[in-house]
Amino acid sequence: MILYDYVLSASCYKVRLMASLIGVPLTLKALNFHPEKAHKSPDMLALNPEGTLPILIDGDDVLTQSPDMLRHLVKDNADWLGNDPVQTDHWLGFAAGLNASLGMARLHDILSYEADIDQVRRDGVTQLRQLEEHLTEQRIDGFAFLTGNAPTIADIACFPNTALAPDGGISLDPYPSIRLWMRDIRSLPNFIEMPGIHRLHELVTPSETTA
């Protein structure tokens, strides 16, 4: 599978992370999204008229929506789809909302995108509070993840823009349940990082570091 990728994109990272977690190799084709806007080049528009990234190519399939890519990647790993399609759909939709709020605040703050920054930040805080409330109730029920006790594509879809919220000037300090949920995702085997999301250095034991 080929992923047209931009290293700083939260949506591209969703796909890279999902693939890594299930051990599916991707051939990454880096695009000069910034400053060249290469995703709007004639070649790329021919591939994806919407001019967005990521784009995932698997044989004849050309996928341009990250939820479709997540489903496609896990098609042989049903556990990652979750048990309740309605719940999974809900959180994939919620992730799109996070991209419009937290993701836009981030593009504004890093790459100077035009945005109604106060409004997108307010929307982001409202959504983070919803996420925190849900994850708190999940913890009360003994569940670590959005839809149960195992991570699904719902978690992977919501994680990047949430974890990168501080890039857009939105603090994650007030959300203890989100903090633990992010920690559980970062602790998964084969987790990969992206700029702005550090790996858990505590997972390296001191004996390894002095070896």
Partner: peptide, 14 residues
């Protein structure tokens, strides 16, 4: 400043 259950072993928070 926090609930005990929100700070796990081997973890830091603000």
């Amino acid at each position: 400043v926090a609930l005990s259950q929100d700070l796990r072993n081997a973890m830091a928070m603000p």
